[in-house]
Structure formats: C-alpha cells, structure tokens
C-alpha cells in the first residue's frame, strides 16, 4: 500500500469515514450505507473499499473492533474523526465559495 499520508479525502474515502462516524460497521454494511446515503451516486467497488480500509487502518483513522466468524467490524478513531471534521470544513468552505460566486451571477 502507499506510504504517503492522506492529505485530501476522495469522495469514496469521505463516505467510508462518514459511515463509521456514529457506529461500527462491517464491509457489507459500509457499502450499504454509502449506497443508501448517496442513492447510488457514489459506487463503492470491493477493491476500492478494502484498499481504503487497509489505508485507513495503516494511517490509524479506523481500527478493527470485532471478529464475528468471518465478519470484521471497523470503528473510527479520534484521528479519523478529526480528519473527517477537517475534510467536512474544507468541503463546507468550497460549497460556500461556490454558492457566493453563483449568487453574484
């Protein structure tokens, strides 16, 4: 996996972190959450999902919490929450800038 730390989250990464914000979830649940929340706008392939999960674990943004049979669940860490909030603020600023610009046209 890549060794460079994450600076900006992609949409898939953002939604994976979002899915873990309030509760622990396993891989299938994460995919379902993202699909429901975005109404299918953000597809999440299994390759992408597990690359993100591995990268997030490597960066300490999430951690594995339980293994129930073959099912593994993941929870967000303090660091993950902080990165999520930072990304959310960045996106809000982007949206605000866009809105302002659009209002003037």
């Amino acid at each position: 996996m890549a060794k460079e730390p994450l600076k900006v989250l992609t949409e898939s990464m953002f939604y994976v972190l979002l899915s873990l914000l309030r509760q622990e979830r396993c891989g299938t649940e994460i995919v379902q959450f993202v699909d429901e929340r975005t109404a299918g706008r953000v597809p999440l392939g299994p390759g992408t999902l597990y690359t993100i999960l591995a990268k997030f674990q490597e960066e300490g943004l999430i951690r594995e919490t339980a293994v129930d049979g073959r099912k593994r669940t993941y929870a967000i860490t303090e660091r993950g929450s902080a990165l999520f909030r930072q990304e959310l603020s960045r996106l809000k600023l982007c949206v605000a800038d866009g809105d302002r610009e659009e209002a003037q046209t």
Binding site: T10, G45, G47, T48
Partner: peptide, 14 residues
C-alpha cells in the same frame, strides 16, 4: 455490477 475499483485515486494508491 459496479466495477471492482470505483475510485481512480484509490486505484492508484493500491
């Protein structure tokens, strides 16, 4: 069925 990888940046990371 959607692609195995759906995010070019994550694909590059992998």
């Amino acid at each position: 069925i959607p692609e195995l990888d759906t995010d070019p940046e994550v694909f590059a990371m992998a």
